[in-house]
C-alpha cells in the first residue's frame, strides 16, 4: 500500500531539519511515543503507547536509515518496522521524507510503501489511510508547535529551557532525519490498532 502526502510547517527547512535529529523533540511530536532512542549511527528504536476506550496498547518499532541528502531539498530514506504481538501483525515501511522551502515555511512531503502483514492486513487499508491522515495532522501540528519561536504555552516542561528548538542539532544532520517519517507511519498503524480494538 502506498501512502503519500505533504504538510506545511511554519518554519524554514534549516529550522525544521535539526528537529529531526533530536529524539526528545521527536518524542514530543509523535502522539503516544513513550520511548525513542538511538541505538547506533543509523538505527533507532522506540515504543508507542496509547489508550483508547480503556484498552492500553503498546507497540515497538525500529527505524533504519538508508540514506540522507542534505541540500536545498533535504531528504531521507528509511526502513521502518513495527509489531503488535497481541494482534499478530507486523508492518514494514519503506519511507522517503523530503523537506523543501516554501516561502517562510517548509513543505514536508512523504511517500511510504507500507506492507502490513497479519490480522491487521486483512482489515485495514481504508482505515489505515484514514488514520494516517489523522496522525499526520496531529504530527504536523506538534511539529509546528515545536518550531514556534516561543515555547508552547501550558506545557511547563517546555518552558524549562532546553526544549527551545533552535538550540538543538549537535549531531550531524546526515543521520537522524528519518525518524519523522518512521514515526508518522508507525503511528498510523498504531492508531489503527487502537481504532480496531475499540471495535467501532
Amino acid at each position: 500500500m502506498k501512502l503519500a502526502s505533504e504538510f506545511s510547517v511554519p518554519a524554514s527547512p534549516t529550522e525544521v531539519f535539526p528537529l529531526f535529529f533530536d529524539p526528545d523533540a521527536m518524542r514530543r511530536c509523535i502522539p503516544g511515543c513513550e520511548e525513542l532512542e538511538r541505538l547506533d549511527e543509523s538505527t533507532y528504536r522506540g515504543r508507542l503507547v496509547n489508550e483508547v476506550a480503556h484498552v492500553r496498547f503498546s507497540a515497538g518499532f525500529s527505524a533504519a536509515i538508508e540514506s540522507v541528502t542534505d541540500s536545498d531539498v533535504k531528504a531521507v530514506k528509511a526502513v521502518l518496522k513495527g509489531e503488535d504481538r497481541k494482534l499478530g501483525s507486523s508492518i514494514k515501511i519503506d519511507a522517503q521524507l523530503r523537506i523543501r522551502p516554501d516561502g517562510d515555511s517548509s513543505l514536508v512531503d512523504y511517500e511510504m510503501d507500507m506492507a502490513l502483514w497479519g490480522k491487521l492486513g486483512r482489515l485495514g487499508e481504508p482505515i489505515i489511510r484514514r488514520r494516517s491522515q489523522e496522525v499526520e495532522r496531529e504530527f504536523a501540528a506538534l511539529l509546528a508547535a515545536a518550531c514556534a519561536p516561543q515555547p508552547v504555552t501550558g506545557e511547563p516542561e517546555r518552558s524549562t529551557g532546553t526544549a527551545a528548538v533552535p538550540t538543538v542539532a549537535p549531531s550531524p544532520p546526515s543521520r537522524t532525519a528519518r525518524t519523522v517519517a518512521v514515526v508518522a507511519a508507525v503511528l498510523a498503524v498504531i492508531a489503527v490498532l487502537a481504532g480496531m480494538r475499540r471495535g467501532r
Partner: peptide, 23 residues
Amino acid sequence: DNPMVYGGGTAIQILIKQGILFA
C-alpha cells in the same frame, strides 16, 4: 471491567470473530 454495550450484535459479532474486539 472493559464493558461494551450489545444491541443487535451484527457489527460486534464480526469484530469478535476477527479477533480484534477485546471487550
